[in-house]
C-alpha cells in the first residue's frame, strides 16, 4: 500500500515535469492550432543550456535561468519564423507544419548532439537540497516539489492570462476565427509570434526546473514531445486544466506501471493510457468535440 502511495506521489511529481512541457505545447496550440513537434527538442536544448551554464560555466542559478529562457525563446521564435508562419494561411488541412516542425526538431537535436559531444547524460546540480522529504511513508525530493509548484503556478498564471487580459482573449479568438480576429485589428502573424514567445518562456522555465531531475540527455527531445502530446490528448486539447490533468495522469500511470509491470517498458504505459482514453473519451478528459477537428 505504501509502495502504491509512493508511486502515486512520485507519479504526480514526474507528471509535473510532463505538465510543464505540455503547457508550452498548449500555449502554441491554442493560438495557432499548430502542434509544435520541436517543442520537446526546445526543452531538451534548455536542459543542455542549464547544464552548460551551471556545471561548466558555474553561473549563479538566476543568471542560468535567464540564459536558458533567453536561448529557448530565441529558438522558438526562429522556428516560428521559418517553420510555422509560412503555413499559417494555408488552412487547417495543410499538414506541412507537421513535417516542418518535426524537421526543425531534427535540426536542433542534431546540432545539440554535435555540441554536447560524447559525454554521457550528466546531472545538473539542483539549487535545493538533495535530501529527500518524508511525509509518513511517502518520500519525494525538493526539486520534484519545485517542479510541481512551478506547474501549478504556470497553470494559474496562464488561466488568468487567458481569462483576464486582452492578449489572452486575442490569442483564443484568433484560434477560433482567424478572419473575424483580423477584422478586429488582431494580426494572426503577431499572435503566432507571441504564442511562440510565450511557449518559449514556458519551455525554458520547464527545462530549468526539470534539468536536475532528468539529466542532460540529447536523445530525449522526441520523447518529451510525445509525452507532452499524450498529456494534452489525455486531458483534452486547448484546455489548460486538461493539460494539467492529463500530465498528472500520465505521470501516475507510468509510476504505477513501473510498480506492477516492468520499468523497462515504461514508455508502453503512455501508449496504453493514450489508447484507453481515446477509446473511452476520444476528446480527452476536459476536451470538447470541437477541438477535435483541428
Amino acid at each position: 500500500m505504501s509502495l502504491l502511495l509512493n508511486a502515486i506521489v512520485t507519479g504526480i511529481a514526474i507528471g509535473a515535469v510532463y505538465g510543464l512541457i505540455a503547457m508550452a505545447y498548449s500555449v502554441v496550440f491554442v493560438a495557432t492550432r499548430v502542434f509544435n513537434l520541436a517543442q520537446g527538442d526546445l526543452v531538451m536544448v534548455g536542459v543542455l543550456v542549464s547544464f552548460w551554464a551551471i556545471e561548466i560555466r558555474h553561473w549563479p542559478q538566476v543568471v542560468a535561468l535567464l540564459v536558458v529562457i533567453g536561448v529557448v525563446c530565441a529558438l522558438s521564435l526562429v522556428e516560428e519564423r521559418i517553420a510555422v508562419r509560412p503555413f499559417l494561411g494555408r488552412g487547417v488541412d495543410d499538414i506541412g507544419w507537421f513535417i516542418s516542425t518535426l524537421a526543425f526538431g531534427l535540426v536542433i537535436a542534431t546540432i545539440a548532439t554535435n555540441l554536447y559531444g560524447n559525454r554521457p547524460p550528466l546531472p545538473v546540480a539542483s539549487p535545493l537540497t538533495k535530501d529527500a522529504i518524508r511525509i509518513g511513508s511517502v518520500t519525494t525530493t525538493p526539486q520534484l516539489l519545485l517542479a510541481f509548484a512551478t506547474l501549478v503556478l504556470v497553470t494559474v498564471l496562464l488561466e488568468l492570462f487567458y481569462r483576464r487580459t486582452w492578449l489572452g482573449h486575442a490569442l483564443r479568438g484568433t484560434a477560433e476565427d482567424r478572419e473575424v480576429a483580423a477584422l478586429r485589428g488582431i494580426s494572426a502573424v503577431r499572435m503566432s509570434r507571441i504564442a511562440f514567445l510565450l511557449g518559449g518562456v514556458i519551455a525554458g522555465l520547464a527545462a530549468f526546473v526539470i534539468a536536475p531531475v532528468v539529466y542532460a540527455d540529447v536523445s530525449l527531445g522526441l520523447s518529451y514531445s510525445i509525452k507532452g502530446f499524450v498529456a494534452l490528448a489525455v486531458g483534452g486539447f486547448g484546455s489548460t486544466r486538461g493539460a494539467l490533468a492529463g500530465a498528472l495522469s500520465l505521470g501516475v500511470a507510468e509510476q504505477v506501471f513501473d510498480l506492477y509491470a516492468d520499468p523497462h517498458y515504461e514508455l508502453l504505459a503512455a501508449l496504453l493510457l493514450l489508447l484507453v482514453v481515446l477509446t473511452v473519451r476520444p476528446h480527452g478528459i476536459f476536451g470538447s468535440a470541437k477541438a477535435r477537428t483541428v
Binding site: W166, R172, G173, K290
Partner: peptide
Amino acid sequence: FGGLTVAENLML
C-alpha cells in the same frame, strides 16, 4: 467567438 464570454468578446 463562441468559446469566449460576451464580456470577453466585447473586450477583444
